[in-house]
Nucleic acid binder design. Structure first.
Length: 832
RNA sequence: GCCCGAAUGGCGGAACUGGUAGACGCAAGGGACUUAAAAUCCCUCGGUCUUAUGGCUGUGCGAGUUCGAUUCUCGCUUCGGGCACCA
């Protein structure tokens, strides 16, 4: 029987993709519920901000997620795979002003368009669970969580120095300041004093740190970044009495072992003690001018550049409680009020900053920790010595090893009631107040008589004010809208004012993954039963740019929701995959560089399947992906070749029965073996590390084997059964990547049953075994010859064969054989 | 400055636990088909020497361990990422 494979037909992806998308939608193929005997699997990709249209980064992220979802379904899991919209945020306001539309209108239009785009990609979401965070039905529950946190003391208001972005007209959290600039618009951030609401994330600092150890399924890199961000330091907090005064200066140090080397004190310009130090101070004006200048410099420069160390003596002294030394107190520009106590004991001999400062102002440098073999006495030091060593000049502690001395000195401070062990974190509380319109209102009320009052839960949601014409742009912040903020006190009924700040949009994304478990639940933020069924997320996928921001906040919220009784897990995301960027011509795609690839164009020209296939094939997910238009064509060619083959061979495939593995000719055995090897390879690639690129190349190899066996002289030896087995397997293996394509071809060769109802193929280890092996023969570690041998050969005969091999003999050249190394099924190395 | 990570053909990338470097794809070159082109199919494809069998060389650089190193150790170089007065 001869079959013609048409050489010219290109498969009609447009019709095929439309057909299957319609089917999946109308039949709600990917809808899930908890009533299933199957084990649950929750795969989630970071939901997008509805900026207008999807970009290649989304395509990549969601293609990866969809492969995981479809693969796990084939493996028999009950897969939750939802999608939604992180739909509050600044761009909506800017766009609304620009286009004279309303942020809500702009946002919902974008959502409609982008949902359409995601459907065009054939992503297998349960669309019935879709959420949009700007919907009052979503943020109502966020407000309720806020209130419950407030009741637990996890929310508080304070006036403090905040990060202000002038271009965004709002405050930013510490995590949102990237190298001194705004995470969203790159504008330089300035310092301002403002009142705002804070989440007490620092209450969870220790647990957030400890539980990092539970995140074995996260990239080490992300765990390390979080660990550094939390920045735990242990040391001594200790009081230094101010000379001729009742006041004390409290310091924190991680080097209590150097406490005998303190030669001065540095305090932050904002330090509260400064006020009393200035009283009756002859140099009051000079000091005031200095601190004012430093504070304003700090505000302008933010934390971009390291400025030179600068300070001024206050004329006051304090007493080192350990040795009675009288030491001068300086105001210094490098001391941060927001870390530790805002005051530092300065040990210039053992701290580089203090060293530079001491050099500049000619202050004493007193070495007290002498590293092994070093001589720090008297000689001019070039830099601070930070190594451990033996204490000298340290009273009763002289001669002690510095690590031991740390604890002894802490113990001593405690016994004298002047200090104790202390832990300090770099992590600060999360400032969530934003002075913008398009965000979730903070449900608090300020009463003239009763003070701050929470909005009663039954009055939620506090919704954003609608405009007279909601089509029109009016993005005035809430503090400019009296109709919004004028209200009455829930306690006394008197005149009161609503909080006019809205919440940081990172609050919405800190719990959306839990809401997906019960997205329409109307009794409380989460249906506990559903949440405990689905959570934690088994596999979370998104960009590494959220390594700290979103992922830290979500971990915090998970712990808070647990403590509020909504969740019974400690960590939200068991496994995390951080995918690389999509780049072109060596750099990130951007409008300014003019190297943007629009997914729409690709879908129109090649279809969703090809687009997905290339974005999975070109690189492993965690690496950056270099976009290559020619590479896309290669993937398209690959799909076309399969399509033509299956069409041409459909009769044979349909006629194929089950493979009888003990009754195969050599061509059949070769294809049968390759099929099972491919199943094994693809399965392992996906299971181990989601390396779809190598999984796809394995399927390409299988197809190459299939088509070459068919084109050459062995053509007539191939029975229908092995062809059918190869094609059936190939289609299921490829289905997670190119679902429409495989569904269509499957339907042409199977009268009944959709590919979605199939099981993942299982490989047969026997069938996958090679019956011949290539053994490498080395002489002195260099490859000299190769042998084809039966797979079951034993080491002794292998060795014998190697010693008889002509090529090997040439290189042995009659020399004495020292040693022969035989590696099973791999090689023989003859050492002469 | 400190802490991570990476470096393999013209390109994207592969290589199990130390055991055939370059799978798969792209590009390039040659051929078949065609009046021609496109499409499709076949062949070649790290460098170098050689008529060829084949030899030598080759995974950023330099050492080391080993019968054997892309893989392990040490020291560099370059690039990328994170943190950056955190006391």
């Amino acid at each position: 029987m001869s079959v013609n494979v048409s050489q010219e037909v290109l498969y009609d992806f447009k019709t095929i993709e439309q057909k299957w998308q319609d089917k999946w939608l109308s039949q709600a193929t990917y809808k899930v519920s908890t009533d299933s005997d199957k084990e649950k699997y929750y795969v989630l990709e970071m939901f997008p901000y509805p900026s207008g249209r999807i970009h290649m980064g989304h395509v990549r992220n969601y293609s990866i997620g969809d492969v995981v979802a479809r693969y796990k379904r084939f493996r028999g899991f009950n897969v939750l795979h939802p999608m939604g919209w992180d739909s509050f945020g600044l761009p909506a306001e800017n766009a609304a002003i620009k286009n004279n539309t309303h942020p809500a209108r702009w946002t919902y239009d974008n959502i409609d368009y982008m949902r359409h785009q995601l459907r065009q990609l054939g992503l297998s979401y349960d669309w019935e669970r879709e959420v949009a965070t700007c919907n009052p039905k979503y943020y109502k529950w966020e407000q309720q969580i806020f209130l419950e946190m407030y009741e637990k003391g996890l929310v508080y208001q304070k006036a403090t120095t905040v990060n202000w972005c002038e271009s965004c007209h709002t405050v930013l959290a510490n995590e949102q300041v990237i190298e001194g600039t705004c995470w969203r618009c790159d504008e330089l951030v300035e310092a301002r004093n403002m009142t705002g609401w804070f989440f007490k994330i620092t209450d969870y600092a220790e647990e957030l740190l400890d539980d990092l150890d539970k995140l074995g399924g996260w990239p080490d890199k992300v765990v390390t970044m979080q660990r550094n961000w939390i920045g735990k330091s242990t040391g001594l907090q200790c009081d230094f009495p101010v000379a001729d005064s009742d006041e004390k200066l409290s310091i924190f140090t991680t080097r209590p072992d150097t406490i005998f080397g303190v030669t001065f004190m540095s305090i932050a310009p904002e330090h509260p003690l400064l006020k009393s130090l200035l009283k009756d101070n002859p140099r009051e004006q000079e000091i005031r001018d200095f601190t004012a200048r430093i504070i304003s410099e700090k505000q302008q420069q933010s934390n971009v550049d390291l400025t030179e160390k600068e300070g001024i003596a206050t004329g006051h002294y304090c007493i080192n409680p350990f040795n009675g030394d009288k030491i001068p107190i300086f105001v210094a520009n490098f001391v941060l009020m927001s870390y530790g106590t805002g005051a530092v004991m300065a040990v210039p001999a053992h701290d580089q900053r203090d060293f530079e400062f001491a050099k500049k102002y000619n202050l004493a440098i007193k070495p007290v920790v002498i590293p092994d073999g070093a001589d720090l006495s008297k000689t001019d030091m070039e830099e601070a010595s930070v190594l451990p060593g033996i204490l000298s000049d340290s009273g009763a502690f002289t001669g002690t090893e510095s690590e031991t001395a740390k604890q002894q000195i802490i113990d001593f401070a405690r016994s004298q009631n002047i200090g104790d062990a202390h832990i300090t974190y770099r992590l600060r509380d999360w400032g969530i107040s934003r002075q913008r319109y398009w965000g979730a209102p903070i449900p608090m009320i300020q009463c003239e008589t009763c003070g701050v009052q929470p909005v009663p839960v039954d009055q939620l949601p506090v919704t954003l004010p609608e405009d007279r014409e909601s089509q029109k742009s009016d993005c005035a912040p809430l503090h400019q809208r009296s109709a919004f903020y004028e209200t009455s006190c829930p306690k006394c009924g008197g005149k009161a004012k609503r909080e006019t700040d809205t919440m940081d949009t990172f609050v919405e994304s800190s719990w959306y993954f839990a809401r997906y478990a019960s997205p329409r639940f109307t009794d409380s933020p989460l249906d506990k039963e559903k949440a405990s069924h689905w959570l934690p997320v088994d596999q979370y996928i998104g960009g590494v740019e959220h390594a700290i921001l979103h992922l830290l906040y979500s971990r915090f919220f998970t712990k808070v929701l647990r403590d509020l009784g909504y969740l019974d897990i400690d960590e939200p995301f068991t496994n995390l995959l951080t995918q690389g960027m999509v780049i072109k011509d060596g750099s990130k795609m951007s409008k300014s560089k003019g190297n943007v690839v629009d997914p729409n164009d690709l879908i129109t020209e090649y279809g969703a399947d090809t687009t997905r296939l290339f974005s999975l094939f070109a690189a492993p997910p965690e690496k950056d992906l270099e976009w290559n238009a020619k590479g896309v064509e290669g993937c398209y060619r690959f799909l076309n070749r399969i399509f033509r083959f299956v069409q041409a061979y459909s009769e044979k495939i349909i006629a194929g029965t089950n493979v009888e593995s003990n009754n195969l000719n050599s061509a059949e055995r070769e294809l049968h073996r390759k099929t099972h090897q491919t199943i094994k390879k693809v399965t392992n690639n996906i299971e181990q590390n989601f390396h779809f690129n190598t999984a796809i190349s394995a399927v390409m190899e299988l197809f190459n084997t299939l088509s070459s066996l068919n084109s050459d002289k062995k053509k007539d030896e191939l029975g229908n059964a092995v062809i059918r087995e190869a094609v059936d397997s190939l289609l299921v293996l490829l289905c997670p990547m190119v679902p429409h394509f495989c569904a269509e071809l499957w339907s042409t060769i199977h009268a009944e049953g959709a590919i979605d109802d199939e099981h993942w193929p299982q490989w047969d280890e026997e069938a996958a075994k090679e019956d011949e092996l290539t053994i490498v023969i080395q002489v002195r570690g260099k490859v000299r010859s190769r042998l084809q041998v039966p797979a079951d050969i034993d080491d002794a005969s292998l060795e014998a064969m190697a010693l008889k091999d002509e090529n090997a003999l040439k290189f042995i050249d009659g020399k004495a054989i020292k040693k022969i190394i035989v590696v099973k099924k791999k090689l023989v190395n003859i050492v002469v």
